[in-house]
Write a protein that binds this DNA or RNA. Structure first.
Lengths: 192, 192
DNA sequence: TCGGTCACTTTCATTATGGAAGCGACTCTA
DNA sequence: TAGAGTCGCTTCCATAATGAAAGTGACCGA
């Protein structure tokens, strides 16, 4: 991947994706969050080629998502432990989990997300820490920061226009959204 | 990518990554959420090769993240609009945004996330809709669902053991975590 | 009529990936 | 104590994915 747009280095999403922008990295993180530590644990849990696993673990160590800890000398052997930086990707994994569950359903239910202590089901959604209330993605917009360049301003303006036009499913009151969905469902069935 | 572990088809994260497990797809979604619709808008915003963009847009349409809408016949031209399924990936993008901001900081500040109406800054964190309270990833654990196979049980057990050992940064008592959050908030304001 | 734009497609060199085999230092079993 | 097995890799190679560049056909505006 080679992004060239002027706003890219300023965009936290683009920066994040240089670190975690491939499936293997995220699946390795998932397994690490589930307690995997050693080379063969990752290999078995993923069905990944060993050469690929070596490359990914090296990159993740150099990106400080994992740290090597020696557990044996002669020959030197290491475990790969999550760093705080790696661990902080848990919200990304959890939101992916929820999206996969909602939008790529299967017959069988193999896993459940639960509270660690009570074992009650949990359902992660977004919350705004600044205002102490649940956060609907449609309420979020971009604003230019102090160091914005023209490419940033163009992005921000385009997003404002799109939100202003009501382009997105939930940039509307909940009732209107339900109506819209019903209408779409109706027109879908007509088109078929 | 070719995952072969028995628990993979049952894991919503693995399923999600078959759809959105590459950087281009997520960056295209980012731009779509910022109002991009047409081929050249995506191309300029990403600096992506046109052949790659064609392939990615096709795949995203077939995965129902985007839908084609004809805006001109002769020659037929289409806009790519987010579907509800695509739009629901906004929480993934937003959590990535926050992680990039926190862990891959740069000198300059090009963008800010703000409330669409008030323009107040917002800060997305996770929240548990089932219990109506903020959710620390360390409180979440996996449980086997009704259709769990041995691979699923092995994963769940490994995760329980890891949490029991206190392997992870925030698998600590809630009081310690609250202190930690307060300390983080304090150091944030000092750093500015 | 001429250049420019838009939305692609095609071609081709470069790079990434997956599969398989090998290796060195153990450990476990007979 | 010989032999087999395990662990954590590395190396090699065929195949697949990607990026750069050039080409295309229908429009549009001067």
């Amino acid at each position: 991947m080679k992004v060239t747009d002027d706003s890219s280095p300023l965009c936290p999403v683009a920066r994040a994706l240089t670190c975690v922008g491939d499936s293997w990295t995220l699946l390795i993180l998932r397994d690490a969050m589930q307690g995997a530590r050693r080379f063969d644990e990752f290999q078995r849990g993923l069905g990944i080629a060993s050469s690929m696993l070596t490359r990914r673990l090296e990159r993740m160590v150099s990106n400080e998502l994992l740290e090597k800890r020696c557990y044996q000398r002669h020959p030197p052997r290491h475990e790969y432990h999550l760093t705080a930086k790696g661990h902080d990707l848990a919200p990304v994994i959890l939101t992916l989990y929820r999206w996969g569950e909602q939008h790529l359903p299967i017959e069988a239910s193999g896993f459940q997300l639960v509270d660690r202590r009570t074992l009650d089901p949990v359902e992660p959604i977004l919350y705004d820490r600044c205002h102490d209330r649940p956060l609907s993605p449609g309420d979020v917009c971009l604003a230019p920061g102090p160091d914005a360049n023209p490419a940033v301003h163009a992005r921000v303006e385009r997003m404002r226009n799109a939100l202003g036009r009501g382009d997105f499913p939930d940039s509307q009151p909940a009732a209107a959204r339900a109506d819209c969905r019903a209408a779409m469902a109706a027109s879908d069935s007509i088109n078929e």
